[in-house]
């Protein structure tokens, strides 16, 4: 559905994206993560057809996106900083969208008024930040898009509204096979709703995988011995990270669950626990692997 092939984008001397490729299937929810300045927003703006790629292909439905009205008509992009016309009320914005998007559904717009519950004659610019975001989702979902591109979408929404918006998005994915790509720093939240995850770092894609495969590939091991921890274990394990507290060691190891268990059992530990990592932990260790670590600097 969404295909990006070896895309490069440069702003002046700044290389924002370098040979980034990605693919998102129809009806999938793809989570894009990365540290600040990694190029997430640039990538999303390329997907929305706002930027033109310097090199490479950005395609939705096997068609290039840039300046392609047919594709843009079925795509909704909710950017990080929202834009509404001056002095426009919610109703005015709705009329404007209805006039330019063929797929606008008045019925949906009315249904959603029960969820969002903001008076239609309020001027959008006078609303709070969180309410403006609600309006963006309200209008966006009424366009019945095939593709939703969301940049930090849940920022500023209250917990109830976050849940409502997530539910609305998931319903559209389940019922109409809408495709969604989301960037966020809230990894807990991405973990709940995404099926694929891509990690960007300094303009390059570090990993992208099925979320469950990503988790199945890396494990946290808690291992304890009644005596000393065997030296060979720490050397042989090839751990990405290890910590030792007395006779208990915590290792972060890549590999398949069964093989790790077998390898560890060979040392006859007193306790052996293998836990899956949370997305947040995976992110931190993947980034550590790429030289972006949590620094232990104390001021």
């Amino acid at each position: 559905m969404i295909e990006v092939e070896r895309v490069n984008k440069q702003f002046g001397r700044l290389k924002a994206l370098h040979d980034v490729s990605l693919a998102v299937h129809k009806g999938s929810i793809y989570g894009l993560v990365g540290c600040n300045g990694a190029g997430k927003t640039t990538l999303l703006k390329l997907l929305a057809g706002i930027y033109k790629p310097d090199r490479g292909l950005v395609m939705i439905d096997a068609q290039p996106v840039f300046e392609n009205e047919a594709i843009k008509e079925q795509t909704v992009f909710i950017p990080d900083s929202l834009y509404f016309f001056h002095n426009y009320s919610i109703q005015d914005m709705a009329n404007f969208y209805a006039s330019i998007y063929a797929k606008w559904s008045q019925e949906r717009f009315q249904q959603l008024s029960q969820v969002f519950n903001i008076e239609l004659n309020r001027r959008v610019k006078t609303l709070s930040r969180g309410m403006q975001r609600q309006v963006a989702f309200w209008l966006g979902l009424s366009l019945m898009p095939e593709v939703m591109i969301l940049d930090e979408p849940l920022d500023g929404l209250d917990p109830v509204m976050r849940q409502n918006v997530k539910r609305l998005i998931i319903q559209d994915v389940a019922e109409r096979e809408m495709t969604v790509i989301i960037s966020s720093h809230n990894l807990r939240e991405l973990e709940d709703i995404c099926d694929h995850i891509g990690i960007l770092h300094q303009g390059q894609m570090v990993t992208q995988k099925d979320l469950d495969d990503l988790k199945a590939d890396i494990h946290k091991i808690q291992i304890a011995f009644s005596g000393e921890i065997p030296r060979a274990l720490l050397e042989e394990s090839g751990a990405l990270h290890h910590e030792q507290r007395g006779s208990v060691a915590i290792l972060i190891v890549r590999g398949v669950y069964d093989q790790i268990i077998n390898r560890m059992q060979a040392y006859q530990p007193a306790i052996l626990d293998v836990l899956p990592l949370t997305l947040e932990e995976i992110f931190i260790y993947e980034m550590g692997d790429n030289g972006y670590e949590i620094s232990n600097i104390l001021y």
């Binding site: 009806g27 999938s28 929810i29 849940q163 997530k166 539910r167 998931i170 319903q171 994915v173 389940a174 019922e175 709940d192 709703i193 995404c194 099926d195 469950d212």
Partner: peptide, 17 residues
């Protein structure tokens, strides 16, 4: 899958899995 994903607010692909 559709009903369950709406009820649990979980990605339909996860339920299919």
């Amino acid at each position: 899958v559709r009903v369950l994903s709406g009820e649990l607010t979980i990605n339909p692909n996860t339920i299919q899995k």
